[in-house]
Amino acid sequence: MSSKTAVDMRWHFKDRVKDSEAWKSFNQIHESFGMEPQNVRLGLATDGFNPFGNMNLHYSIWPVLIYPYNLPLWMCIKEPYVFMTLLIPRPKGPCHDIDVYMRPLIDELRTLWEIGVETYDIYAK
C-alpha cells in the first residue's frame, strides 16, 4: 500500500465528522476494534446480472465484491479499491446454494476478524 493510500485509510477515523448509527453501534459493541485506526472495515456486496443482455436466456453471473470502508466516501467505491472476490456463473442465480460458494471467503474473513493479520502501517511507521 502506498503512503498516500495509508493516509486515506485513516480518513474515517480522524476526518469523518459524523458517523451513521450503524458505525456507532458497531463501535459500541466492538470497542477495541473501533478505537484502532489501522483496523480495516470491509463491506461485502453481490448482485446477479445477465451478461448477454437477453432476458430470455436463463444465465446469470454473480460477482461478490468487497469494499474498504475506511477510505473517504468518494474513494471507497472507485475501481482501484473494489475487490472482486468471487464470480459465480450459473444457468440461474445461486439461490439457496450461495453459501457453498461463499464458504471459503467467509472462512478467510472470519480468520481476519478472529486472529487478524500483522501488517506494516507506512503512515505511522
Rank of each mutant, 00 (worst) to 15 (best):
D107E: 15
T85G: 12
L71P: 06
S60E: 10
C76Y: 06
E36W: 01
E36R: 06
V7W: 15
P51L: 04
D97F: 02
M55F: 14
E114H: 07
I98W: 00
W113Y: 14
M9D: 03
S2H: 08
K14S: 13
K4M: 06
D19L: 13
M84W: 08
V117K: 03
S20L: 05
P104T: 03
S2I: 07
C95P: 00
I66W: 05
T85E: 02
W11L: 00
E21Y: 10
M55S: 15
V100C: 04
A22S: 12
L65Y: 15
P72V: 05
H12F: 05
M9E: 07
V40M: 15
I98R: 03
M84D: 06
V40Y: 05
D8W: 03
W113E: 02
V40S: 09
D8R: 09
L86I: 09
R16N: 05
P51R: 10
P104G: 02
P51N: 15
Y123V: 01
A45V: 02
I115H: 13
D19G: 03
L105S: 06
T46L: 11
V64R: 05
D121M: 00
I66D: 04
L65V: 01
K18L: 10
I98Y: 12
A6Y: 08
I98Q: 04
T5N: 10
D47F: 01
Y81S: 05
V100Q: 08
E36I: 01
D121W: 00
P63Q: 13
P68E: 01
D107A: 11
A6T: 08
R103L: 12
E114C: 10
E36G: 01
P37A: 06
Y69F: 12
K92N: 11
L71S: 03
G43L: 06
H58K: 14
R90E: 14
G116T: 00
Q28R: 10
V100S: 08
I106S: 06
H12V: 04
L73R: 13
